[in-house]
Computed example of a mutant assay.
Amino acid sequence: MTEDVKAKSLHERILGEVEGRILSGEWPPGHRIPFEHELTEHYACSRMTVNKALSELVKKGLIERRRRSGSFVTRPQVQSLVMEIHDIPREVQALGLDYEYRLISSEERPCRKNDRQRLDLPEGAPVLEITASHLAGGLPFCLEERLINLDAVPDAASADFSIQPPGSWLLGQVPWSAAEHRIRAIPADKRTADALDLAPGTACLVIERRTWSTEAHITQVRLTYPGERHELVAQFSPSQA
Rank of each mutant, 00 (worst) to 15 (best):
E107K: 11
R146Y: 14
I130D: 08
P165R: 00
L57H: 05
G96W: 02
M1K: 07
V73S: 03
S24T: 01
M48E: 07
I63N: 04
F141V: 00
M1D: 11
P34W: 00
K8N: 11
K8G: 08
P165K: 00
A199S: 15
E41P: 11
A44T: 07
R90T: 06
E228C: 14
P76F: 03
I207F: 09
V82N: 02
E64S: 13
H37S: 06
L57C: 06
D160L: 02
G227V: 03
K113C: 13
L54S: 01
T224V: 10
I163K: 02
E36P: 15
E107Y: 10
I33E: 00
G70I: 01
Q77H: 14
E64A: 14
W212R: 05
H11W: 11
R102K: 08
A188T: 01
P200H: 00
D155C: 11
C204V: 07
D197L: 14
E215G: 09
G227S: 05
Q93K: 08
S133V: 10
Q164S: 13
Y99G: 02
S213F: 15
S239R: 07
R75A: 15
P110A: 01
V5A: 12
G16E: 09
L62R: 01
I85S: 03
A199P: 15
I104Q: 09
L10D: 05
Q173Y: 09
R65H: 10
A241Q: 10
R182C: 12
V78P: 04
I218C: 06
P200A: 04
F236S: 14
G137I: 02
A199E: 15
D120G: 08
G124A: 04
V73G: 03
L62G: 04
V58M: 05
T49L: 05
E17Q: 12
A178N: 15
P89K: 01
E123Y: 09
A44M: 12
A157K: 04
T2E: 13
V153G: 09
G30S: 09
A136S: 09
I14H: 07
A53D: 01
R67L: 13
V5Y: 04
L143F: 08
G61E: 06
V233A: 00
